Simulated scan of single mutants.
Amino acid sequence: MNAPLVSTPRVEAFFFDADPGTRFSLYHAPDPHRPERGAILYVHPFAEELNRTRRMALLQARRFAALGYAVFQIDLFGCGDSCGDFSAARWDIWKRDLGVALEWLRGRSAGPVQLWGLRLGGLLALDFASSTPVDGIILWQPFMQGRSCINHFLREQLIAQGDNPPPGSPRSTAALRAYLAAHGSIEVGGYALARELAQAVDACDAVALAVPPCPIHWFASGAPAPTRLAASAARLTRRWGERGATVQFHAVDGVPFWNPIEEAECPALLAATSAVFGAEP
């Protein structure tokens, strides 16, 4: 770990060495006046959703810390303030980043360690946990199929083109995917997505993952609460239950704060998550 950029009794911001380069990180120490409950490693969402959701992630990290959890936030390779271009980001590098972060966090906390993933970060957390056991997983509005995330990302390009796209430009996600396959990269909203990363994300499906036998809390927020997802959660609960995992689905009313809405917050999600993880053992 390099020297902290910011250090207070409760928060440290720093870069740590990883392969390749360095990663920006934020560590929230647990409230010393509370019994320590364990540690939580945050796994952020994809591309611009990382920036759109920073405020919500920070607010919840502070709440977790106030409840007695040590919380570690990391910008993965090619993302946020970490080194590397997004065009060079790869799924396996991101999983290696999580491995380094998890080792660092376990050096700080002797308690149970949970992963907390938002959007594609939820699917990445599940994939990582299928080969690196953890004590629990927290999912905030996760993508359960990587292909859905890539399609959502590509649709943003179609929206940006508007009703009068330039002549010859792709006009469907299928056409954008064909362009990506042929050219090896496509730029959407300033993010150059490499074919290799898109293929790895596409191939990831939560149903097929060997999740560890641990508690999984799935929080779904929207306006109104997306109870239609409860059926999907029920199917995964049965599948993952065969491997010893237990799933609890929490539907929450609130705005989709990962969308391009300025400083969108979802107080109900913060309250619901804090209630679950602040409950007495």
Rank of each mutant, 00 (worst) to 15 (best):
A70Q: 14
D163Y: 00
Y69F: 15
D202E: 09
G107Q: 01
S131W: 07
A194H: 07
H183L: 02
T132V: 15
A174E: 14
F143G: 08
L176R: 01
I93V: 12
L158Y: 05
I186Y: 04
G146S: 10
D163L: 07
W94H: 14
M144L: 15
Y69G: 14
R171G: 08
I186R: 02
L123T: 10
G190S: 11
L98D: 09
I159R: 11
I138F: 01
Q73T: 02
S148M: 13
G107I: 03
I137G: 03
G68T: 15
H152D: 14
R155K: 11
F143P: 02
A101H: 04
A101L: 10
D97R: 10
D85Y: 09
R195K: 14
A194P: 08
Y179C: 10
L193N: 02
D127F: 00
G146E: 05
S87N: 05
R90G: 07
R108C: 11
R147A: 12
A88I: 00
D97T: 04
L124W: 00
G190T: 11
V188R: 09
N151D: 15
V188I: 15
A110C: 07
T132P: 11
S185P: 00
P165Q: 06
H183P: 00
D202K: 00
I150P: 05
V201P: 04
E187P: 01
A160Y: 06
L124V: 15
P166S: 01
L98A: 11
Q199R: 10
R108A: 14
R119N: 11
D97Y: 08
I137M: 08
G190E: 14
W140S: 07
N164R: 07
